[in-house]
Amino acid sequence: MFSQENKYPIFVVTGCLGSGKTTMLSKILSEEKMRNSAVLVNEFGSVGLDHHLLRNVEEKTVLMSGGCICCSTREDLEEELTKLLNEADASESKKMDRVIIETTGLADPAPIVFTVLKNPLLKHHFYVAGVVTVVDAVNGLLQLEKQEESVKQITGADKVVLSKLDLASREQIDGLKQRILDINPTVDLIVSPFEKLDAVQIINEERNEGLADYKHLNETSVMAQENPIHSVSLTFDKAINWSAFGLWLSMLLYARGEDILRVKGLIDVGQEGPVVLNGVQHIIHPPQHLSEWPSSDTRSHLIFIMRNVEKQEIIYSLETFQNFIGSGASMLEYANQL
C-alpha cells in the first residue's frame, strides 16, 4: 500500500497567472528524456504548448462534507488520470513515464495531492512525486503580499523556479528569494534562466532531506515577527515511538490542520534508517522508510511551517507528550549548544 514501486509519478506545476509555467514546461518538454510525459493543463494560456500527450481539463473541485479546502477532491483530475491509466495499459506504443499537471494560477496544490492519495483506483497507480512552483521575479513579491493562493503555492512546493530573471533587478530577485525562503525554508530554489534549465533539475524525485541544515529557522527575525507564517525546526535526542508520534500529529492536524501549512521530517524510530515524513495541511504523504540516514546526523528532525501557531506552543505540547513519544523535543540551535 505504501510502496511507490510500479506507480507513475505525478509532478504538479503551479504558479500565478502569467508567471511562466507554460513557457518553462515547453522548454523542458522539448528535451528527449521528457518524451513520455503526459501533460494535463487546466487552462490554455497565451503561450501554446505543443506536446503529443497534451490534454485540457476543466477544474472541478468537490468539497468533502465537513472538510476544509485542502481535503477536497478534484473530480476533473480523477477522470483524466483514470483515462490516462486506461490508455497506458491498453496500448504498448503509448508509453507513459510520468504525468505533469499544470494548474491554473489560483489553484491550491493540496487538493491535487489529496485526490491522488484518496481515490481508491488512483492511489494504487500514481503518487505525487513533487510540486514545482513558478514565481515571476518581477511581480512575485507583490503577489505573495496580495494573494493567499500564491503563499500556499510556496508552502506546498518542493521546488520554486524564478522566471523573468532578465526583466527583474538584482534587488528584486534578492528580496523575492529571501521572502520565499522565509515562507518555506525547506524549498529547493532554482534561479536560472529558462534556456539554461535542464528538465532533470525540475522533474526529479529527490527531496531535500538534509533537515539538519535549518537551524536558522529558530532565530526570530524582525520580518518573521511581523509575519503570521513562520517555521520551527525541532530535533529529538532519542528514538521516537511511532505510534505515539502518529497519535500526537494526527490530533494536531485535526485541530489545527489548516494552520499547519507544511510538515517535513526525518524521524528516528529506532531502526537503521529514518522515516521520511511529508505533509501539506491535513494531508500526510505515505511515510517512506529509508534504509540509511542521508547524513552523519542521525537525530530526528522535524520542521513545521505554521500560521498563527506559536513555536512555544508546539514545543510545550511535545514536552508534555514526551512520556508517550519517548523523547523530548528542542529547537535545533539549543540542541547544538549542548
Binding site: 500500500m1 511511532w242 537503521e272
Partner: peptide, 13 residues
C-alpha cells in the same frame, strides 16, 4: 480502502 498514514509500521523490517 484506506490505510491511514500512522498505520505505516517501521517495525516491519
Amino acid at each position: 480502502m484506506d490505510v491511514h498514514w500512522s498505520d505505516f509500521s517501521p517495525s516491519y523490517t
